[in-house]
Amino acid sequence: MTATLDAAGRLGAGEGGTARFFRTPIRPGRIVMWTLLFLGGITMVMPIVFMLSTSLKYPHEVFDLSLIPQEPTLENYIYVLEDGRFFRWFINSLLIATATTLSCVFFDSLVGYVLCKFKFRGRYIIFIAILSTLMIPTEMLVIPWYLMAQSFGWLDTYWGIMFPGMMTAFGTFLMKQFFETVPDDFLEAARIDGMNEFQIWWSIAMPLVTPALSALAIFIFLGNWTAFIWPLIVTTDSNLYTLPVGLTTFSVEQQIDWELIMTGASLATIPTLLVFLFFQRYIIRGVVLAGLKG
């Protein structure tokens, strides 16, 4: 930022500075925009605030809609954390989200790379076929997945929970778009230097798309961390429940322990918050580039 003197000799900030910001005339359109953004922000934040608030309340206070608990307590947290099942579900979620993330990073980028950098007959058709699967809603896939899992004996197994997400069309598309940005010269130079095609992908192309890999890893991790429908359907053994499925066991036919559900949900957001805090710049860059390319 460059400090500048205005015509009257007063010191002000340069272009983009705070002084300029405050001098900008407030137009009606801007007020409408800020209002909409504010309302959108409130809409996003309020459920989280209620979740945290409810997790600090006693059962009798749950349906009191005040944001600040009258008698704040950590008893819900102690109860949930002392319940061995919560820890087990947490580990299950962590294991499944990590394994699917690693798998997607590997296979999505490998397929994306091949579709981007290798010229072969039918390449475009394969790409379109992969993309077209994005248009099929998960609800439609659940039955075929279930039948497949049943016939292979994968019901009530970790593999049964993980297999539909081990490779994604979205990830393949994202990585293909990113590999477009890698100049062919890099790959050809490596080819001349004696690397085989797998080594070129792994040692040269992959490090050059690290931001995309990070963004993809975050998307996949979060998607699997919060996945509910499929893990609910494919598992009946509570030892295999993921966290979102396990949290539903706090509600039974006659009673729903909202404070415990909200406590578990609050604890479950910690990893996702950490992931966002550490990698948000990669997410933003990944989304921007995926939108710009191709």
Binding site: P183, D185, F186, E188, A189, A190, I192, D193, L208, T210
Partner: peptide, 28 residues
């Protein structure tokens, strides 16, 4: 290409941004 005993310098240099100069030179 790797078995032709040739080396090529590209228009865009094609030096790997994630490697040091030492590793780039030694890559071949």
């Amino acid at each position: 290409p790797k078995d032709r005993n040739i080396a090529m310098v590209f228009q865009n240099y094609a030096i790997y941004p994630h490697m040091t100069v030492y590793k780039n030179i030694g890559f071949g």
